[in-house]
Structures are given as C-alpha cells and as structure tokens.
C-alpha cells in the first residue's frame, strides 16, 4: 500500500484550524469596529465635566 503523505484526518484538522482562525480574525475585526463606533459617538453623558477640573 502506498504511503499517503497527507491523511484525510489532516485535511479535517486543517479545515478546523482554518475555520477557527477565520472566526478569531472576524472577532478581532468586530471588537475593533465596535470600539471605533463607541469612541466616535458624540452623545456620551458620563464624560468628565470641565468645571472644577482645571486648577
């Protein structure tokens, strides 16, 4: 029997790792996007007040 360089198992494992990698990359992009949206918001109500801050 010929020796298989790559077993079917390795293909499955690679698919799984690739899928997980893509999920993680998407998650990073999502957290970055959410951060940008939240930082860009102008309606913050809990921003520190200027009065009393300057000494």
């Amino acid at each position: 029997m010929a020796i298989q360089v790559e077993h079917e198992l390795h293909k499955r494992r690679r698919g799984r790792n690739l899928g997980l990698g893509l999920v993680l990359a998407a998650f990073v992009a999502m957290v970055f996007g959410l951060t940008m949206v939240k930082v860009a918001r102008t309606d913050f109500s809990n921003a520190p007040k200027a009065a009393g801050g300057d000494k």
Binding site: H7, E8, L9, G15, R16, G19
Partner: peptide, 19 residues
C-alpha cells in the same frame, strides 16, 4: 504500525460538525 496511521479517529471532527 500501519493500522495506527490509517485508522481515522471517530472523534476527529470537522469545523462544520461544530457548526
């Protein structure tokens, strides 16, 4: 030894199985 290398672990799941 050959059978160790050719047997497929029944619990070696694909990404789609987790989905």
């Amino acid at each position: 030894d050959a059978s160790i290398n050719t047997e497929t672990d029944p619990l070696e799941a694909e990404f789609g199985d987790f989905l």
